[in-house]
Nucleic acid binder design. Structure first.
Lengths: 204, 204
DNA sequence: CCCGTTGGTAAGCGCGTGCTTACATCGCGC
DNA sequence: GCGCGATGTAAGCACGCGCTTACCAACGGG
């Protein structure tokens, strides 16, 4: 920052931020997750992500290789979070995530990102092969019907539809509804669809 | 097609197709509807639409003004189709559209187009202000619960979620499920959620 | 037949996108 | 202190996008 350091000769003035690769990388990841959730993959540009992270866009490519790989890492970083917990608490927890009105931690916004990015193969794959598969097997374990897996899929479809209609589309009255009221209706109806749970201790 | 008509001087060889503005316009509309349903708005380029319609892309702008207006016309052209019929047949009919496996007439593919284009304001508006509002009032009329409108919204969310998970995401077993089986499950469960219909003839 | 309007074409424009390049400087280990 | 690799910067590239322009010829009416 000495007097002769204004670098106007070539416009290459070098670093003005303290160097911290880890923080830079985390800032990009968080900015990307937020923007993908708000706008979806297609409408989010790498310049926007870098600006929100407060870094130069070239760093996005240095740390993540491409926009595509950044998206993959955003999804992967949130994958475990979305799959945590046992089957019995799955529905209330996913509903809580979907219905939460205050700004959640970015790690909880994956569903919004993928719902807004369904045209992207990576998002569709996450919905189908990871979330869908994991949610499906857990929800099916709550039903003793012969078509338990199909019923589980219909519940998953409902969850995603709720997220879509409330947060992405903004349809009232669902968009403004009291989360507890929605949750109560959904849990009761899902219970009806799934039927009785398998007997836990009836085996001889 | 005479020997001296190879037009290599300026590359402006003039028309090679018989002129029919109406057919051209319809071809563009149909091609756009199909591509928007397959790929969503963002990933569909005007060159693709024109190529599928078998016309020069400049005609897209001549007849529709912009890609944006083309999309609006595609949605508008399918709006009435999606809203036809009374409340009692709404669910079976929308489900039939969503679950139909053979290539439907393009006019019936609006839901897929909008589900794949939810990031686009026009699609979101259609889902919210037109389809959502119309479906909502009709479904709410099938319920005598005090929160009938919210329950109707939850049914709409389900419909959209089913379309999303089956056609856009391709999640099995829902993607491969027998339409009649799905319809039976959904109708029964929706009936449970909506509760008893209003009394039709109890007034004196 | 002539002329004006209409519909079709090829080529090109301006801009924004994802991505790259070259340079500067920091920070750490020796 | 020095050297080198790591990290940050500004500028720029190649390409594709939506859209425009200029031209040609078909078509229908007078």
């Amino acid at each position: 920052m000495d007097g002769d350091g204004d670098g106007t000769v070539s416009g290459r003035s070098g670093p003005t931020r303290r160097r911290d690769a880890g923080a830079t990388r985390a800032a990009l990841l968080e900015a990307a997750a937020a923007l993908f959730a708000e706008q979806g993959y297609e409408r989010t540009t790498v310049r926007e992500v870098a600006a929100r992270a407060g870094v130069n866009q070239a760093l996005l490519f240095r740390y993540f290789g491409s926009k595509e790989e950044l998206f993959a890492e955003v999804l992967a970083a949130q994958n475990d979070e979305l799959l945590a917990g046992p089957a019995e608490t799955l529905l209330p927890r996913v509903l809580a995530d979907l219905l939460r009105d205050t700004d959640p931690a970015w790690v909880r916004r994956a569903l919004q990102a993928v719902l807004r990015s369904v045209g992207h193969a990576g998002a569709a794959e996450l919905l189908r092969e990871r979330l869908g598969a994991a949610y499906g097997s857990r929800l099916a374990s709550l039903s003793s019907e012969p078509d338990a897996e199909l019923r589980a899929d219909l519940v998953i479809a409902w969850l995603f539809g709720i997220g879509l209609l409330r947060s992405v589309v903004g349809k009232r009255p669902l968009a403004d509804a009291d989360p507890d009221q929605v949750t109560a209706l959904v849990l009761r109806t899902a219970r009806h669809l799934l039927g009785d749970p398998p007997a836990a201790g009836s085996g001889d």
